[in-house]
Amino acid sequence: MFPREFRRKFSTRPAAAGLTAVLLLAASERAQAADVSPSGAQPSAVPSTTPPSSDVPASVLQPSLAGGLDTLHRTLIDWQVVLGGGAMIQPSYEGSSSFEVSPVPFVMATFGEHVKFDPTGLSVDVYSLGNLYFSAKLGYDLGRKEDDDAYLRGLGDIDAGAVLGGTVAYEMGPAEFYATFERIVGGSEGTQIQFGVDLNHQVDRFIFTADLSATWADETYMQSYFGVTALQSAASGLPQYQADAGLKRVDLSLAVTYAFDEHWLVRGQAGLGYLLGDAADSPIVQEAFQPSGLIAIGYRF
């Protein structure tokens, strides 16, 4: 089973790059634990080089550079840094019937046992009791631009904002049951709660993952993303619409990760979301089914 701290916890569009990093690092941890590399050995550190004294100017540059690279290499290993990238296809906005392909570069690092950074923000493990875990999150929400799709013209932009949140998760064999809370400060000023279950299974160097989740949003969030005010109706031609709090969507994702060795991994993932309730009924929504897919490769130091 994947280490608990690297499981999927957020599924919003802006988190795509961070999600990829989390999953690839999880697979890397799993690969190392199962010793899937040919040698099973941990990467060896570059031998330390002591810079020569300043009275030998001709030989200062190369040893100093080697020493600096050694320090950088050790830091990348200590912080469990993952670098990678890929491509993702997804609706141009939540509810769109058209798709966009976008790159997903990412970097992720772990500081000590409890603090982690990825493109979605900073997370901190707060407390654990047996198989029950609690963590806090500081991230961001990118909002929505009306030029993301021609269908949004006249609706105006939803500004970006900070995200304050937390997660509670419980492990049970190959499954993890989780619930996340996200409060957006600035931008939509809305709140989302996601709950779901994550399953994973390893066969040799392959790791198979399935995740099923549902997302609830408050009235402020729903009205920001799916409502149409009188002014927006006049500017866009869409009918006026009031979106109330409730279940926003359900999501199912299936993925497979292949570990070439203890460093290199490649992952393919397919997802299907379905909008519900007032979100699905919104005149902004062109299609309730929201499929997506990604392919990514990562390297862990």
Rank of each mutant, 00 (worst) to 15 (best):
P57R: 03
A58R: 13
A58H: 05
L65G: 12
G67W: 08
G67F: 12
G68L: 15
L69S: 12
T71Q: 14
T71E: 14
H73Y: 13
L76N: 10
I77M: 09
I77W: 02
Q80K: 10
V81K: 06
V81D: 07
V82D: 04
G85L: 06
G85P: 08
G86A: 09
A87E: 04
I89G: 10
P91G: 04
S92K: 07
S92W: 00
S96P: 07
S97D: 15
E100I: 13
V101L: 15
S102V: 14
S102H: 05
P105L: 11
P105F: 08
P105R: 08
F106A: 11
V107F: 07
A109G: 10
T110V: 01
T110S: 03
F111T: 02
G112E: 03
E113T: 03
H114V: 05
K116C: 02
F117K: 11
D118A: 09
D118R: 05
G121M: 13
G121W: 10
L122K: 08
S123H: 05
V124Y: 14
D125K: 07
D125L: 02
Y127C: 03
G130S: 11
G130E: 09
N131K: 09
L132I: 05
L132T: 06
Y133V: 03
S135K: 06
A136S: 15
Y140P: 08
D141Q: 13
D141V: 08
D141S: 15
E146T: 00
D148W: 02
A150L: 01
A150P: 00
L152Q: 04
G154A: 02
L155Y: 06
G156Q: 09
G156E: 07
D157C: 04
D157T: 02
D159Y: 02
V163I: 14
V163W: 04
L164A: 12
G166R: 06
G166T: 05
Y170H: 11
E171L: 01
M172F: 12
P174D: 11
F177C: 03
E182F: 07
